[in-house]
Amino acid sequence: MSDATSAETSARKCPVIAIDGPAASGKGTLSRRLAAELGLAHLDTGSLYRAVALLLLRAGSDPGDGVAAASEAMTLTPGKVADLSKDPALRNDATAAAASRVSAISAVREALLDFQREFAEQPPALADGTPAKGAVLDGRDIGTVICPDAEAKLFVTASTEVRAQRRLNELQGRGVPAIYENVLEEMKDRDARDSQREVSPLVPAADAFLLDTSALDADQALHAALTFIRTRPAFKDL
């Protein structure tokens, strides 16, 4: 570990779990359950990019416009993100597609870097006012870029076919008409964008625990993650 990394780790008061993985891998559900189980604050970093995308779409701007996207990203505050997270449009397909484009813009990622690191270093209190014991962040580059010194890193994945079926079930559960073949192709396109982009591509951190959830339900995935996390010194007593 470098002197700079050691200094950053010692300066941070709370331990961090970094969770990365592709769409519909189950990392969001897992992250929320880990946070609840261990008393950690949770940040879905993908919601930040969705928030920027939604603001752009509502302003009639092109999600690929780097200047406009970076400008919107710099307006985000914890309160603004909290308000947008309650907006149903944040989770629709149009916003998701726009967010995938927005996340490839280096100026946007740079604008959101401090937001995410500050959350990790000084996690907010839990909903009941209890101080958080640490933080869990999930996204695409948490273990590689945002928190490369996180005490526990996981890369959650599943086969493309399984993830497409999960997304199909989610869409149909919301009453959205969808065809498996179309969802599968969209999943493949998104994976390609996320893994091949020049800025912060989706790749496992070298020291990440690889968790394939293809054949696991939510409880099994949680058990596997907790088994790994509790091998890390910072989390043995949580």
Rank of each mutant, 00 (worst) to 15 (best):
E181Q: 15
A205G: 10
G134L: 05
F119I: 10
D93R: 15
E110N: 14
G129T: 03
V176E: 13
I142F: 01
D83Y: 08
P131R: 04
E72C: 14
V145Y: 09
A4D: 14
R33D: 11
Q196N: 07
G26D: 06
A11Q: 13
D191L: 03
R167A: 05
R101F: 07
R32A: 13
S10L: 15
R232S: 02
Q116A: 06
A132Q: 06
A7P: 00
G39Q: 05
D212A: 10
L154K: 04
P177Q: 08
L48T: 05
L90Y: 03
T9N: 05
P177Y: 09
G26K: 07
A221I: 06
A192D: 12
T45A: 13
G66V: 09
R197V: 06
D217Y: 12
H42R: 11
S2F: 05
D3M: 13
A215N: 13
T75V: 10
A111W: 03
A135L: 01
L43A: 02
G60V: 09
A104K: 04
L56Q: 02
A152C: 11
F228V: 00
A215Q: 12
R58V: 00
L112N: 03
D62M: 00
G134Q: 01
C14W: 14
P22G: 03
L56N: 01
S71K: 14
L238D: 12
E170G: 09
S71C: 12
V108L: 09
Y180M: 15
L238A: 14
L184I: 00
S10F: 13
D62V: 03
R101A: 15
L84F: 11
A89T: 05
L55R: 14
Q220T: 07
R50D: 11
G26W: 11
G129P: 03
N92T: 08
T144P: 08
D141S: 11
S214N: 12
D87C: 00
T77P: 01
V102E: 08
I142S: 05
E121K: 13
T77A: 02
P78S: 06
K13R: 15
L48F: 10
L30C: 10
D191T: 04
R197H: 09
T160L: 13
R197F: 13
D44V: 08
D189Q: 14
I19C: 13
L202Y: 02
L168Y: 03
L113K: 07
Q172E: 14
A35P: 00
A125F: 04
P233Q: 09
D141K: 08
P131K: 08
A218W: 10
P233C: 07
Q220C: 10
R167N: 04
V67W: 09
V136H: 05
D194V: 01
A69Q: 02
A70L: 03
S6N: 13
L34T: 07
T130R: 14
D191C: 04
S106Y: 10
L40R: 04
Y180N: 11
V67A: 15
A73M: 02
A206I: 07
S214Y: 08
E198H: 06
R109D: 02
M74E: 14
